[in-house]
């Protein structure tokens, strides 16, 4: 019988039937019951206007000029937009206000260094989208680093997560927990960057 089924399987052309796809239906009623969060006014992003774009290869070349140990780069996008340096400085200041308005503070596991860094990157991307940026993804990512030396008020030791931004004035590192920003070339742990998530 089993053999017969196998034979039939080979002789009968099975019709191609698309598998039904499950979709989430957003719960708008539950959403309407939530209070609205008002966040501080972010620095305005001006889309386009000749903003320089770059590729992963460009970023790797910039990193190589700063550190012999180039981190692994993880990305989905292929074209990135470099933010104006002034915008980046203003955004770092905004992120500090944002954190204060939400009472953002370090909590082990729940909201630790990688959450701060991802939060910084997520809202930067959102603000660029809000400004209508369509030239590429924002060249601001979060990095995992061997934190051998203290920086930006964070003590040395263990693995850590910081933000790397490729601005119109080059690569910068940002410690999102304290809103400290400095050129990557001056970052004491620049040779300990393990991966960069763009």
């Amino acid at each position: 019988m089993g053999v017969l089924s196998v034979l039939l399987g080979f002789t009968a052309a099975a019709p191609v039937v698309a598998e039904p796809v499950e979709r989430v239906v957003p719960d708008l009623a539950a959403l309407s019951r939530l209070p609205v969060t008002v966040l501080p006014r972010p620095p305005a992003w001006t889309a386009g206007s000749g903003k320089p774009t770059c590729t992963v290869d460009d970023i790797v070349a910039e990193l190589r000029a700063i550190t012999p140990k180039t981190p692994k780069i993880i990305h989905q996008a292929s074209i990135f937009v470099r933010p104006d340096h002034e915008w980046m400085v203003a955004y770092v200041r905004w992120f500090r206000k944002f954190g204060t308005s939400l009472n953002l503070h370090f909590e082990d596991e729940l909201f630790d260094c990688d959450k701060f860094a991802r939060c910084f990157v997520a809202y930067a991307g959102l603000i660029a989208q809000r400004g209508g940026e369509s030239g590429g993804s924002l060249c601001v990512g979060w990095a995992v680093v061997d934190n051998q030396r203290s920086f930006g008020g964070i003590e040395a030791g263990g693995g850590h997560a910081v933000v790397i931004a490729d601005t119109s004035q080059g690569l910068f590192v940002v410690e999102p927990q304290t809103a400290t920003m400095t050129p990557l070339g001056d970052y004491p742990n620049r040779d300990g960057l393990a991966e960069l998530n763009l």
Binding site: K115, A122, L126
Partner: peptide, 25 residues
């Protein structure tokens, strides 16, 4: 348009973490 799904995945994760900090810690 040009789509980068990482933005939305991070936003969802960060939002959930912010809510958890607010609610239970």
């Amino acid at each position: 348009g040009p789509y980068d799904g990482t933005v939305f995945a991070r936003l969802l994760e960060v939002g959930a973490s912010l809510a958890a900090v607010r609610e239970h810690g």
